[in-house]
């Protein structure tokens, strides 16, 4: 278990080394508490918190995405978690900026928070009140794919990624469709896990399997870096 945990931590760190630093101001948990009020309609946090309409948020930071025991997540979040993606301050920041853009298919009915500062306050509150993840919730024994980790660790060439991305945008619109999701703004760890699963054939889709089979690791890293940076 210990090895798994440190592996996941390494993945989470590597995932955001390649991305441009997210605009994260120093959050004020007290202000975050006020901002949390609308969230509390669905999410509990702190002592005795349980799942309600949304999952409880205790130990959210460091928890595998979409894998809190006893809550049924959307396929999108569950798939991301099953593939080793974690909630970190950075992923949470991107998610809260535009939940449906970040995780198309999320069931969370929330438009997002535009203000960088407000997101930082809210995340500071969630981290302080909910604490960090306990070992057993992180990944539920799913080891990070070493292939994914090695690609995430590469420094992606953003300009090359921008060029390569033009092949994606023939089908993936910026806003996403009902069946073809948006991929702009995806965290590198999420993007790379998805692409590698298509390339390996563990996730099946004729078009995606064919277009990913010819992508080298450098190209996937370039695409991940570009999509993470794309507005």
């Amino acid at each position: 278990m210990r090895a798994v945990r440190s592996g996941l931590a390494a993945l989470a760190l590597a995932a955001f080394a390649a991305a441009p630093p997210p605009a994260q101001a120093e959050g004020d948990p007290a202000r975050g508490e006020t901002l949390f009020r609308p969230c509390a309609a669905c999410h509990m946090i702190g002592e005795d918190a349980v799942h309600r309409v949304g999952p409880h948020l205790n130990g959210l930071i460091g928890r595998a995405i979409g894998l809190a025991a006893g809550y049924e997540f959307s396929e999108t979040l569950a798939a991301a978690g099953a593939e080793g993606a974690l909630w970190s301050e950075a992923t949470l920041d991107r998610f809260l900026a535009g939940p449906r853009e970040y995780f198309p298919g999320t069931r969370m009915v929330f438009r997002g928070i535009r203000s960088d500062d407000d997101r930082a306050h809210l995340i500071a509150y969630i981290a302080q009140t909910g604490g960090v993840a306990e070992a057993q919730t992180a990944g539920q024994g799913t080891a990070p794919d070493p292939e994914v980790a090695s690609i995430v660790a590469l420094e992606g060439d953003v300009a090359y990624g921008a060029y390569l991305s033009s092949e994606c945008t023939a089908c993936h619109s910026a806003s996403g469709g009902e069946d073809i999701p948006a991929i702009r703004g995806l965290a590198p760890s999420v993007f790379v896990t998805g692409i590698v699963a298509y390339r390996n054939g563990t996730r099946e889709h004729q078009v995606m399997n064919t277009v990913t089979r010819r992508l080298g690791d450098e190209e996937i890293a370039a695409l991940a870096a570009y999509f993470a940076s794309a507005e």
């Binding site: 023939a170 619109s173 469709g177 009902e178 069946d179 073809i180 004729q206 078009v207 399997n209």
Partner: peptide, 28 residues
């Protein structure tokens, strides 16, 4: 490299292929 739909695919695969084409039209 190439691919093509198969004759013996199930109805859901065919329906998903159609829905996907609608998203493609919007995207392109």
């Amino acid at each position: 490299d190439s691919f093509i739909s198969q004759v013996d695919e199930d109805a859901e695969t065919r329906a998903a292929t159609y829905r996907e084409s609608l998203d493609w039209y919007e995207a392109i």
